[in-house]
Design a protein around this nucleic acid. Structure first.
Length: 488
RNA sequence: GGUCUGAUGGCCGAGUGGCUAGGCACAGCUCUGCAAAAGCUGCUACAGCGGUUCGAAUCCGCUUCAGACCUCCA
């Protein structure tokens, strides 16, 4: 139970010992997707990063309530554009109800996450289902004097807030700097000052998604849902808030401001931000149009892709970099990840073939120690993988007989490897799953026949069996005393 | 323009003052009917220029380059 976990807190810009408010409970909130398009590689990063955290906390004995929202309320492209939101535009283009669009992409997102081995969160609230809570939050902020109504819309009064509180504490921005650098978006804006942001927006006639509120028929500001829903499900104070680095400002900064304006303090103790995935050194993102969807990745249907990459390769690729580093996409890197993952999975299977000896020439505790130390150091998954690969070699040596291991140690090794590879890193051995009751015995039968052919020095028959199996994707590896096989 | 990150070997990617992560690629060897796999060995880098130090990829300064945020974004 006692954890040595250290996490980097964006709020303090330091690695801090993780101390939950009410152990063994942990409250975790992560910003989820806006469901108006197919999930892309960028979505996989936070999902996998915080899935890793979720899994590790659970393994460490914490009872985690993990909340990840679905943004299904259309928000405006920008303040000057009073017309349509992204969801509505999509709905019109595809001739659908906005909620139909949201549902469709929510399902697509869920499916992709499932493929990637991302566990479902404990609660997945939708913004559209929490309009009441958002309206109440706006009212509280108004009551506390940190917001004003203007022509049916409600804006957060940043200047007034900043006089008492630290607006910019998370992003490290200074309000004076922001003031000089705000681009004035002209037009029909009801804001008093450029830094103010919308809490409630009066809907233009063509705006389809709208709800009734004391101020107007309208829709909530886009920072609002996270403030309202995190507090609703995790309490006024909770442990960890996560999301992509690009959300730090303004989204998370505004969240803190909203919570503080309502209750006097921010909600989360630790703020964690994953870095971006880049493509040719540039951020991959919807707005840049250079993103690759997860489905394209899984099927290899994108002009930049040399081949298809399985969900587990994507997961492994992401875990091989630390979550706070940018990770550059390339076919070469993905292919390297694919081969590395194959080797790791082969070794996991090899453990079961190792014959125990009397005494151990290897120290199994070394693996567990290194993996835990790495995880405890701000989720250093690359270091975990590095330790595992050192043990891939050792496992192969055990199998070859150049090292020996006792039965007890072997069982411990199996347990540790499975725990870190499957339970914590969340990897899956998809190839092993294909070795089902039908394929297994068939292959075994053919390989027994091949053994006979080899014994008879009938190389033509032996090679034919092997070549034919290779052709249909089954790799045969001869050993001194028999054979191994696997599905490619 | 403001704020902030980063620059590591053929590629990806850890590491924060001395003890040379790991993966992929490449080369040689062992094993082997051949092949594959595996093992062993080799390849040993930290953008540039100064400074601090017994010692710097790691700390400080400057330069160059790249990226992110400042507007929706994971």
């Amino acid at each position: 139970m006692k954890s040595e976990l250290v996490l980097y807190n964006t709020l303090t810009r330091e690695k801090e010992q993780f101390k939950p408010i009410n152990p063994p409970c942990v409250g975790l909130y992560v910003c989820g997707p806006t469901v108006y398009g197919d999930p892309h590689l960028g979505h996989a990063r936070p999902a996998i990063t915080f899935d890793l955290l979720f899994r590790y906390l659970r393994e460490e004995g914490y009872k985690v309530r993990y909340v990840r929202n679905i943004t299904d309320v259309g928000h405006l492209q920008n303040d000057a554009d009073d017309g349509e939101d992204k969801l509505a535009v999509k709905a019109r283009l595809e001739n659908l109800e906005p909620m139909e669009v949201a549902q469709y992409y929510t399902d697509r997102y869920h499916h992709a996450m499932d493929e990637l081995g991302v566990l479902p969160p404990s609660i997945e609230p939708r913004a559209s289902g929490h309009i009441m809570e958002q309206i109440e939050l706006v009212q509280e902020i108004l009551d506390n004097g940190y917001a004003y109504e203007s022509n049916g819309s409600v804006y957060f009064d940043v200047e007034k807030y900043a006089a008492k509180h630290n607006y910019g504490q998370l992003s490290g921005r200074k309000i004076e700097d922001m003031l000089c650098n705000t681009r004035e978006l002209d037009g029909q804006c009801d804001k008093q000052r450029p830094l103010d942001f919308a809490l409630w927006k009066k809907a233009a006639p063509e705006h389809i998604m709208r709800w009734k509120a004391p101020w107007s028929l309208g829709f909530p500001g886009w920072h609002l849902e996270c403030s309202a829903m995190s507090v609703k499900y995790l309490g006024e104070r909770f442990d960890i808030h996560g999301g992509g680095m690009d959300l730090m400002f303004p989204h998370h900064e505004c969240e803190i401001a909203q919570n503080t304006a309502a209750s006097g303090h921010g909600a989360a103790n630790y703020w964690m931000h994953n870095n971006m995935i880049t493509i040719d050194g540039q951020k991959m993102g919807k707005s840049l149009g250079n993103f690759i969807t997860l489905e394209e990745l899984f099927t290899g249907t994108h002009k930049l892709l040399a081949q298809a990459y399985s969900p587990m390769v994507i997961r492994f690729f992401i875990l091989q970099a630390h979550y706070r580093s940018t990770l550059d996409f390339s076919n070469e890197a993905l292919q390297a990840a694919e081969k590395g993952l194959d080797r790791l999975m082969a070794a996991v299977e090899t453990i079961d073939k190792v014959m125990p000896g009397k005494a151990s020439t290897v120290d199994v505790s070394d693996l567990e120690r290194r993996c835990r130390e790495a995880m405890n150091d701000d989720l250093n998954s690359p270091m975990v993988i590095s330790a595992l690969f050192d043990w891939v070699r050792i496992i192969n040596q055990l199998h070859d007989g150049t090292q020996t291991i006792s039965a007890g140690d072997l069982e411990a090794l199996r347990r540790i490897v499975h725990r870190f590879v499957f339970d914590i890193l969340g990897l899956r051995n998809d190839a092993a799953a294909e070795k089902n009751d039908l394929v297994g015995p068939l292959v075994e039968m053919l390989l027994e026949m091949r053994q006979q052919a080899k014994a008879d020095k009938n190389w033509a028959a032996s090679d034919k069996i092997r070549d034919e199996l290779t052709r249909i994707g089954i790799v045969v590896k001869d050993r001194k005393d028999g054979y191994d096989w696997s599905i490619k």
